[in-house]
Computed example of a mutant assay.
Amino acid sequence: MLCGLALAVSCGCSAGGGNGERPPGAPAGVTARAGSATSVHVMWNAVTADPPVGVYEVYRGTAKVADVPGTAHMLDVVRLAPATSYVFTVRARDGRGRLGPPSRRVRATTAAASVADTSAPAQPGRVTGRPAKSRAVQLSWSASTDDRKVVSYDVYQGGARIHSVGGGRTATLITGLRPGTAYTFTVRARDAADHLSPAGPAVRVSTPAGAGGTAGTAPSGFRATAHRAADGAYYLDLSWVAPPVDGVVTEYGIRLDGSTVTSLVWGGTPPRGRAAYRFCPGREKGVTHRVRLRARLPDGTWGAYSAERTVTTGV
């Protein structure tokens, strides 16, 4: 029986420096769509830079509203006013702290608030999908209905939301997928009051085989040690580096002695660099455990397991 959980983060920090290298360029492909009466979904394309982008800064007008990890390319800007127009830009900051120029300005208007809206939209129907090259899938669905208005559609892969589009659209291109991989997608409609519909019919699509199928999806540099705490319990100390995938990893599954014992979900921004986690498998000395972990990838699938480590308590 697990006797406690603890979380620690060790973030790699890069010192600033001026060696004549250029800062990252302006993010391209920036879009902004109202998600509800009080939120806007902002998305952009990844910026290629050397050293890589560490943080994307998202601005509403001239005010910065969030720092987004360099592996993520979308953000829900919340706590906005209904029926109000906002302008957004995105800037990239590299690992040396150099800030690139702003993207083009994009405008979005939140939906009008509906005080009496207590009903969720109906589920979208007739969801279809087809592969579009080895790393993308084209999805389409029939429009949902609502007693007021559908403001946006959220696309899920498994239980993870990976994309959003405006309520006037019934098709989208999902990118950043892995070649030779089977995916299951569902679509949910959202109204101005932030009510979500039931998920539409699931559609299963397989991307064609190609370079980069499952390679590189396992956490690297996995380490495991044991220590005894002041209360007499033994803890396993784990650390690893997130897999280098397109997007941000927010969840890990930890497997102990052949069984999945816990799912670790970051409550805030996931760490950059090496991450660490600590949990207690029991209080008995001299017990040998086998442990490994895997990441839930940004496309909603589980990646490959890390190398397995063997740890003995009290040794």
Rank of each mutant, 00 (worst) to 15 (best):
A192F: 08
P82L: 11
I174A: 01
P298S: 01
G314D: 03
T71K: 13
R79K: 14
S119L: 14
A112T: 11
D117R: 08
I162F: 03
Y153P: 04
R255V: 13
V315I: 14
P121S: 08
P271A: 04
P124S: 02
D231E: 12
V205Q: 00
R98Q: 14
T181K: 14
W44M: 01
A229Q: 11
Y59R: 12
V265A: 09
C3T: 13
A111E: 00
E21S: 15
D76F: 10
G100T: 06
A34C: 07
K285I: 06
V241A: 10
M74K: 10
R148E: 15
T84P: 04
V137R: 00
G210F: 01
V9H: 09
R188M: 14
P124Q: 02
K285E: 14
R296T: 10
L236F: 04
I174P: 04
G200P: 10
A32C: 06
C11M: 11
G29C: 05
A229P: 01
D191P: 03
W302T: 01
L5W: 13
V68A: 13
H289P: 07
T262K: 13
R294C: 07
A63T: 09
Y234D: 05
G258C: 05
A72K: 09
G168L: 07
E251D: 10
T128R: 15
T184M: 07
A211R: 13
A233V: 07
V9D: 09
T71M: 12
D147H: 06
K133N: 12
G180C: 07
E308A: 11
E284F: 09
R292K: 12
G4H: 03
D194L: 10
H289G: 09
E251R: 15
R33Y: 08
P69C: 00
S306H: 01
Y153N: 04
V203D: 04
L264A: 10
P179D: 02
A307H: 06
L236K: 05
V291R: 04
L238Y: 06
Y277D: 06
R278G: 05
A116G: 09
V155R: 00
V155C: 02
G95Y: 11
Q138F: 10
V9F: 10
E57F: 07
P219F: 06
G54L: 03
R292I: 01
A46F: 11
A171L: 06
V30P: 01
R93M: 07
D231L: 13
S103R: 00
F185H: 05
T250I: 03
V47N: 04
Y234E: 08
